[in-house]
Amino acid sequence: MEFEDDSRATTYTTLAAGPDFRHELEIRRSRFITVLRRSPDEGAARSLVADLRREFHDARHHCSAFLIGPDRMVQRSSDDGEPSGTAGIPMLEALIKRVSPAGATDLSDVSAVVVRYFGGVLLGAGGLVRAYSESVSAALDLAPLIQRKRLRLCDVGVPHADAGRLENELRSAGFVMAETAYEASQAVLRVALEDEPEVFADADARVAALTAGTAALARQGTEWIDVPY
């Protein structure tokens, strides 16, 4: 499937697919419950706030921030009743400034909500900024992060009986595999490659060697693919 957008980014960092990630801090008797969700669009990000308002209906604040898009063009935050600038913006800054395992500040498609249960001790403006920033940063320190890369998909058609062996061989050789399609007459393996001539040449040679020259790569469109760090 051809990926169509006007993004100039070819890679960024995001949360690994899976359930929401949660982390809790207690700061001067207040509970700060941070929930992170992978959010490909604003609807997904805003649904996290709605979900947590229902779950933690007795909490005083549900502050939020999110980054959306490969180029991080969509950035939003909310203080949700905390003094202006003390919650949402520090949370957003923690997302924006997060350094990935590759050393880049490219986190995106992530929404964060910090649910606060007031503990009776006022933190002051500076204390709130530190608390909300620390809450998001501490959650990100532990959350599972992956790379999201825009890669060229290449199809390889092989007999059903050979599909498992070939897929394992290609994975062992370091190739990124997308979902295999099982058709009536054959299995179609999908290899995700960086769009560079030398990468294609290496993959072509590897497939030819592993199939005794009976199969070849057929170049398709580009897609965003999850790649572990």
Rank of each mutant, 00 (worst) to 15 (best):
residue 88 G to D: 09
residue 65 A to E: 04
residue 156 V to S: 07
residue 225 I to C: 05
residue 226 D to S: 13
residue 26 E to A: 11
residue 218 A to K: 08
residue 149 K to N: 10
residue 216 A to D: 11
residue 147 Q to D: 15
residue 98 R to T: 15
residue 102 A to Q: 15
residue 32 F to D: 07
residue 25 L to E: 14
residue 184 A to P: 00
residue 45 A to C: 08
residue 221 G to A: 06
residue 177 M to S: 08
residue 59 A to N: 06
residue 156 V to Q: 06
residue 136 V to K: 02
residue 45 A to G: 09
residue 104 A to Q: 11
residue 216 A to C: 06
residue 34 T to H: 05
residue 107 L to A: 03
residue 8 R to Q: 13
residue 46 R to V: 11
residue 163 A to M: 08
residue 105 T to H: 11
residue 195 D to N: 14
residue 19 P to W: 02
residue 63 C to W: 08
residue 228 P to Y: 12
residue 59 A to F: 09
residue 157 G to Y: 04
residue 65 A to S: 12
residue 83 P to M: 04
residue 218 A to T: 15
residue 120 G to A: 07
residue 151 L to V: 06
residue 119 G to S: 05
residue 22 R to W: 10
residue 87 A to R: 02
residue 120 G to E: 07
residue 130 R to H: 06
residue 58 D to V: 10
residue 225 I to G: 00
residue 170 L to G: 03
residue 40 P to S: 09
residue 222 T to R: 12
residue 124 G to D: 05
residue 39 S to V: 00
residue 56 F to R: 05
residue 18 G to A: 05
residue 139 A to I: 01
residue 210 L to G: 00
residue 211 T to N: 03
residue 86 T to S: 06
residue 142 L to C: 12
residue 190 R to H: 10
residue 147 Q to P: 04
residue 159 P to D: 12
residue 21 F to T: 15
residue 197 P to E: 13
residue 123 L to V: 01
residue 97 K to F: 06
residue 122 L to R: 10
residue 130 R to V: 04
residue 160 H to T: 03
residue 205 A to S: 11
residue 136 V to S: 00
residue 59 A to V: 05
residue 41 D to I: 02
residue 139 A to L: 04
residue 140 L to T: 02
residue 48 L to N: 07
residue 107 L to S: 02
residue 15 L to A: 06
residue 191 V to M: 12
residue 32 F to I: 04
residue 14 T to E: 04
residue 206 R to E: 09
residue 75 Q to F: 08
residue 38 R to T: 07
residue 175 F to N: 05
residue 27 I to C: 09
residue 30 S to A: 09
residue 65 A to W: 04
residue 220 Q to C: 11
residue 119 G to W: 08
residue 107 L to I: 00
residue 146 I to C: 14
residue 74 V to H: 00
residue 145 L to A: 10
residue 178 A to T: 12
residue 22 R to T: 15
residue 222 T to H: 12
residue 103 G to P: 08
residue 213 G to N: 05
residue 212 A to H: 13
residue 191 V to I: 13
residue 126 G to A: 03
residue 124 G to R: 07
residue 118 F to S: 01
residue 118 F to E: 04
residue 179 E to M: 10
residue 117 Y to C: 00
residue 123 L to Y: 03
residue 153 L to D: 12
residue 191 V to F: 04
residue 28 R to N: 14
residue 92 L to K: 02
residue 55 E to S: 07
residue 93 E to N: 14
residue 105 T to M: 14
residue 128 L to S: 02
residue 7 S to G: 08
